[in-house]
Design a protein around this nucleic acid. Structure first.
Lengths: 240, 240
DNA sequence: CGTGGACTTGACTGCTATCAAATGATGTGG
DNA sequence: CCACATCATTTGATAGCAGTCAAGTCCACG
């Protein structure tokens, strides 16, 4: 599929889009903006007036603390919506930054409000998207709160492997994940040093090889078993 | 306000409801069901066909792990929506159980879909509600992941104090929180034993007194400062 | 070829988990 | 009213996972 169609593709996995709906969505994605690696798309406290859609590249959501620590609260892949806060016209409660060079489409708040009022099924599909994101957050909270670091990292790799695969970004058992070990630690709520040791453990167990921004998973089923990973929360399968 | 109006009240803090919209919402809440304390409203894997709205009482969302551990991923107060999963007709990725005797309204999926298709501003308001919930989850993830246990507990108390206050469930600096220390631990990603020690610390610091299901906060500003609590993510204030 | 960033490893510390036991609160039936 | 069971709370002792501090290696890049 073409890059700009990733989003329509994703929505289609929930509702059958009419011609008009499909057209509307493709207009949203028509003029994506280039964002360089490490660019901060939104910072906490900003009041953006547009909803954004990732077209290509990786990004992450994060929250800063006053003590200098930071929590990554989600990764964004092509097809993910990137700022629903704008939709409700409030100050963003978190920042978003690019992990790689990326392209991002911006849909002005007013445009989106008009379009979804006219096309209720589109509203439904977008709501569905946010609910999936919320499910992912619940999984992260549970993962970071209740699992030891090795299984925790394994679980994150499982999730990202599935999500990358769904949009054609995984070849065989490997995919690109342009993050440093420090960032991985911020996502897993562990220090960079401990992230390093955790990765070594997974490597020694033959479960995951993570080097130079590439994740290699020899046996995804074995990894999933180790992490107790249940992909249900990603809502990947269509079920109407 | 009457109990059944809590939800309409909450929606009104985002959009001005028309007469028709207000009527629709009050129909949703017209026939609430009684739920006894400790009842499980939904279990992970269920496929409910109705969206629910808390009318009175407390509940919590949780996720079980195969090793017997559990993570509480949110508390539900009157006015909170309690199962958007139903909206997308999928298996629930988490369970919901009552902390106290409660009343809960159920809105059949089809009813809700028809109503929001007809009343786009209502759809907008509901979407807004879910986005606030998502913001709360990001705050929890950050809180549990990056703060030491005493500040972590303090932060949770701040959040719950604010939310209880908004719906008139707090008198002065105190409110009812019908949870055991074990459950508090499951919410904070610490053991019951450590929850107990953490509560002792907060008591000795004169920040929070938590006994017999009642939270007493002598000085909310001092507690907020200790917890680095910023209420922005709760979107309590109206800002149009 | 020097520099800086990312990665790696070691030594030590400390927060939190685990195991265990005692105390207190609540409720039920005799 | 007391015996008893059950659950929540509290405290102590010990163990271990992860944090902190520090130093060294490996690369990519100017």
């Amino acid at each position: 599929m073409t890059q700009t169609a990733v989003f329509a593709q994703k929505l289609s996995s929930f509702v059958d889009l009419s011609e008009e709906e499909r057209l509307t969505v493709s207009e949203w994605c028509a003029q994506p903006r280039r964002m360089p690696k490490h660019a901060h798309f939104i910072r906490e406290g900003d009041c953006p007036d547009a909803v954004c859609i990732m077209i290509s590249g990786w990004a992450y959501r994060y929250k800063d603390l006053s003590n200098g620590r930071r929590q990554i609260v989600g990764f964004l892949l092509p097809g993910d919506m990137c700022d629903p806060q704008a939709f409700i016209l409030r100050a963003a409660d978190h920042g978003i930054a690019m992990l790689s060079d990326a392209t991002v489409a911006s849909v002005p708040r007013t445009t989106m409000l008009e379009d979804v009022a006219r096309l209720p099924r589109l509203a439904q599909a977008l709501w569905w998207l946010s609910l999936v994101d919320t499910g992912i957050l619940r999984a992260w909270l549970t993962n970071n709160g209740q699992r030891p670091s090795d299984r925790r990292a394994a679980h994150l790799f499982c999730e990202l492997a599935m999500r990358a695969k769904m949009i054609g970004l995984a070849q065989g058992g490997s995919f690109e994940l342009p993050v440093s070990q420090a960032l991985l630690g911020e996502a897993l709520s562990i220090t960079a040093v401990h992230a390093n040791r955790t990765l070594r453990t997974l490597r020694e167990l033959g479960l995951v090889e993570f080097t130079h921004g590439t994740v290699v998973v020899p046996d995804i089923d074995r990894l999933a078993a180790f992490a107790e990973f249940d992909p249900g929360y990603l809502q990947l399968d269509r079920r109407d």
